[in-house]
Amino acid sequence: MYILGIDTATRVAGAAVAGDGRLVSERFIHNLKTHSQNIIPMIQQVMDDAGIKPADLDGIAVTGGPGSFTGLRIGMAVAKTMGQALNIPVMGVSTLRVLAWNYYRTSGLICPVLDARRNEVYTGIYGSGPEGLEELVKPAAMSVEQLLDELSRRRETVIFLGDGVPVYRDTMITRLGSQALFGTMINSFPRAGAVAELGTIKLQQGYTEDYTFLQPVYLRKSEAETTWEKKHGQ
């Protein structure tokens, strides 16, 4: 069984092929260039490296949000359309879960943090359960203060990772002291290999959803909607 993993959710672009219980090939680019130009050639490369053709794929997994709105749509449009052409399942995997996967089975809490600007982060809190990652606080856009309140109540060590860390690192240390730990450089970004692995697990658990209308999980409305709702008292 071969699964293609695609990630263009943040400033990193990645593609990977997992098959027969191993990660076969992976590419990762953090050069801030446009994902739109990079992603198909990257997919082409990992497929060639794995020695397989699109028709050999059994499923496609993609980081489904949160993240950069545009980045998410590029990955989602590519994944859904490839899946449609091949008539195989397409799975959206939470970007936060993909990040947390880097520290699965470490003790304490895992807290992926993506910079959502406007003084907010996209975040969730995860723990390592016997069957996989446990979602202790579900993904949301919130202020870093609100997140740190929640974490300090839990009194456990927490490992932070993601592109929100450089922005809020000092605040995290000030607030949580030695309770706060930080991921290593290699483990601080979403990895397409993890996307492929989580997709494989999902498929093995019998995923059969219709992805035709699948959309990214933005966790935030468009500014136009927010403004409109405010103006109309909703």
């Binding site: 739109s36 590029i74 449009a77 590519v78 490839m82």
Partner: peptide, 14 residues
């Protein structure tokens, strides 16, 4: 970008 991404996915896959 949505149309371009979809079209490229088709061109590559097919």
């Amino acid at each position: 970008l949505v149309g371009v991404s979809a079209a490229k996915a088709l061109a590559y896959t097919l």
